[in-house]
Nucleic acid binder design. Structure first.
Lengths: 132, 132
DNA sequence: CTTTTTGCAAAACCTTTGCACAACC
DNA sequence: GGTTGTGCAAAGGTTTTGCAAAAAG
């Protein structure tokens, strides 16, 4: 693994992500950063997002909508995808997770290291719109 | 919605999927069917997979590896993705799923309609290779 | 000065789509 | 005959990559 050097772009990408709670896509990050870095390229955004995710400093969310989302909040929490508008929200409630106990165990001969859970439904915002 | 007409290709796609337990991608279905349908096109495969999934006759699995997988087994079961080789396996064990009870309820103002769970780890096959 | 990062553009991928022709009913 | 499905090819969208120049150490 090569040594890591500082880059203003990478720092800005991480800072930007930390200000957002809506799990932006690479494209959203790119367009938002162009205010401060008019010449930043989409390739750089992707490279840094991948790097930060590999370092564990951010989380990459693959939610099945065909686009990767990124989250600076790496603490344990669940995600909710609105079937209506596609927005991704954190679920702050603490759920008992019976799957945790499977980590490290073997099921059908396969070693389980982790699991992912995400919820679908209609978000607060879209529910309100339906009432009007 | 238009009326549904029979097609040999669609039938073959579904039959093929029923013979497989490894959750093939559209491309795998395509290449496998070319033995019987030398002129079948990838577009036709995608169209029929999407149609069958919409009809609920097969399941589309979005497992976060960037490619859709398809499963003729629509019964309730969990999926396992090998971090090493990427293969997708069924987990036949019955796990208690405490998330079921959330369906229809409201969390943080968002209505929860469903959820998805998948497991990651090292599959039986790759574990054996590591020992040699 | 050496190594890493960037910007740009092109390429790689997966999936969808338009259209004329074939298949179905 | 009217409608739906197919094959082909092109387009769409997301992500990766090659390369020369710029930045970092």
């Amino acid at each position: 693994m090569p040594a890591l050097k500082y880059s203003r772009q990478r720092e800005a990408i991480k800072s930007f992500l930390m200000t957002r709670k809506d799990h932006p896509t690479a494209d959203v990050v790119y367009h938002s950063l162009r205010a401060d870095f008019p010449n930043i390229s989409l390739g750089t955004v992707y490279r840094n997002l991948t790097l930060l995710a590999d370092l564990g400093e951010i989380a990459r969310l693959r939610l099945g909508d065909g686009v990767d989302h990124f989250d600076a909040d790496t603490s344990r929490h669940y995600h909710f995808i609105c079937s209506e508008c596609g927005s991704v929200l954190d679920l702050h409630t603490e759920f008992p997770d019976s799957f945790d106990s499977l980590h490290g165990t073997s099921v059908d001969g396969n070693r389980i290291d982790g699991h992912a859970v995400y919820f679908q439904g209609i978000c607060h915002c879209c529910l309100n719109k339906q009432h009007s």
